[in-house]
Write a protein that binds this DNA or RNA. Sequence first.
DNA 1: AATGAATGAGTCTTCATTCAT
DNA 2: AATGAATGAAGACTCATTCAT
Lengths: 192, 192, 192, 192
Amino acid sequence: MSKEKILHAATRVFSEYGYHRASMDEIAQQAQVAKGTLYYNFPGKSQLFKAVVKAGFEDIMERTKTDLSSALPIKEQILRVLRHHLDLFLDSRHFAHIVFNEISNGIEPDVLDELKQLRREHLSFLAGILREAQCEGGIMRDVDADLAAASTIGMLESTCNYYLSHQEEYSREDLENFVFTVVAEGLFKSLD
Amino acid sequence: MSKEKILHAATRVFSEYGYHRASMDEIAQQAQVAKGTLYYNFPGKSQLFKAVVKAGFEDIMERTKTDLSSALPIKEQILRVLRHHLDLFLDSRHFAHIVFNEISNGIEPDVLDELKQLRREHLSFLAGILREAQCEGGIMRDVDADLAAASTIGMLESTCNYYLSHQEEYSREDLENFVFTVVAEGLFKSLD
Amino acid sequence: MSKEKILHAATRVFSEYGYHRASMDEIAQQAQVAKGTLYYNFPGKSQLFKAVVKAGFEDIMERTKTDLSSALPIKEQILRVLRHHLDLFLDSRHFAHIVFNEISNGIEPDVLDELKQLRREHLSFLAGILREAQCEGGIMRDVDADLAAASTIGMLESTCNYYLSHQEEYSREDLENFVFTVVAEGLFKSLD
Amino acid sequence: MSKEKILHAATRVFSEYGYHRASMDEIAQQAQVAKGTLYYNFPGKSQLFKAVVKAGFEDIMERTKTDLSSALPIKEQILRVLRHHLDLFLDSRHFAHIVFNEISNGIEPDVLDELKQLRREHLSFLAGILREAQCEGGIMRDVDADLAAASTIGMLESTCNYYLSHQEEYSREDLENFVFTVVAEGLFKSLD
DNA sequence: AATGAATGAGTCTTCATTCAT
DNA sequence: AATGAATGAAGACTCATTCAT
């Protein structure tokens, strides 16, 4: 009960302020529990943060998995993965930022390792989908699937970030089209 | 004199610890000046950080510009831009991280705006080069140059990051080839 | 049932950490009861501590009494008292320390008074034995029995403490001989 | 300047409350400096405590040394040492208690080691004087000088403690006589 | 131009205690 | 008789910033 409330509040607060500016006081207040209750449910700030990030990764992976099905053509599956991540980066911009980026700053090393592990798992998940695409249809280029997953995530986040501060200039459809194009065909017509 | 030393030390310290974990004490110590001297030369921590980031952006832009010349074919110019940014992300990993990412966390809003402006200028610079490529040769796809610049930066950083924690699996050449392929041709052979 | 378990665990925990560093959490855990059970059986931490100290005093007094008997020559009785206290200070070093010394630190005043009373009773018990020695045989010097009891306890504890951190240099027998000599004859051959 | 004030205040506060109940807030208040000033001058609570204890040991040793001189007969020297320690235990009861006893509780292990070292040095100092007495005059029994020093300190403190809570029953002279007797001749007329 | 002692608001964390069940 | 979730006061410590020199 309290744990739920705390996790929700912590997600909000970490998203808004980032790890370091977020204070346990603020989280307790927003969760409407006493500060001690935070420490009754989580060992400390960094562990609470880890729980938030973990829930975030699990959520995006769960949502993506649910929407996929082997019945779909690989091409469609990848489009859906992209769309899910776009949703995440657009709807929960700040949350996505902490989940994908705040992982590197000044967090206790032991927790940091676990966070990196979570990120690795997420990338593996994406890479797995890409690898399938390579095996099956021969649709995909023969690039390293892990690098491809990593590069795609960074590309998506950066692009969404830019989009969000220039919303008047693009529509959501523009964004999707751009992303699909870049992923699919790259920037150049030909470089040879 | 002092200003130089402080700027160098601040770059080192911010790179190592990130904005929030970096302390003015540590910076003063590494710069071998008294703490008061920091405040004599810079109004405060966030302003000092801004100066560091600004110098960072200027450096990468300067280095890139120097290496370009209208004599070169556009294609080659873009390769060089990519290579310069790869260098930055690989050699000064942490520095690049704060320059490109720490900009969004929990920094005082007034300074944050100026930092965002700096990032915008850098993206404009890159977008400018891409736009040239579009005008001139018809080599490039007709995607939005600004989005393309933003997406490329994100892709580069994320890819380098992954590469740096998996160096045993890839060579630097692998990395370059991958990046060039992705930028040039995207991930798919065809999606239609 | 629970009370017993708690008392045992509390003794262990107080002995290991001292009064202030010992936590009710730790005690509950070691006693394998819920924290609430502690408060069901004892009014609070200081009262629990008092119970532990009381049991400690009673134990050493009981053990000593059991081993004495009016049949024994006074001299032998005193040797036995010394030996019992040596055993206590050596075998249950930390426990003895809290029983005899932690009594004065920063404990709630109300409980502190009761603890001091317990110590007083123990000293009275020892002084009683000494007084007997004085009456009966004329073996003992005509010093104040209460002061003598107090001084002896302090001497024993301090000596055992030193011994315990220099065990490689002395045998247990050395220690006993030293203590008996000091008690019996003092440090000097003659001071007149 | 501040350092002095802090050290004085800390001595007062630690003496009154013991290590754990003493709070940095209270010390800062009594020293009339801001809390930050405490940490500017001392790395932390335990280090501040160490400084207090160190000053205490140095003070008693200094005062004792000053009063001794090789011209005096050994017997007189030892009487003076005893008197100085009596003064300390009587005049600065609480301070002496923390200096000699609080050394064992729940202090950070690294600092604890240094504190133990200080105590060791003090005992060595006392043992040195005793050893002289053994060499020179043959006045002293052939007991281990280190054990003798340790036992004497414990005896003194314990006796003073008892005296202080029963002042109506003894005079200071009674106390001195008792202590001298015990040290000199022990408790028994003869035990053989 | 430079210093560094001093500050105090802000943070994380601990823990004895309570109480509804 | 026993539980354990929840509390909140209290405490140690950090650090950007100020200012007299």
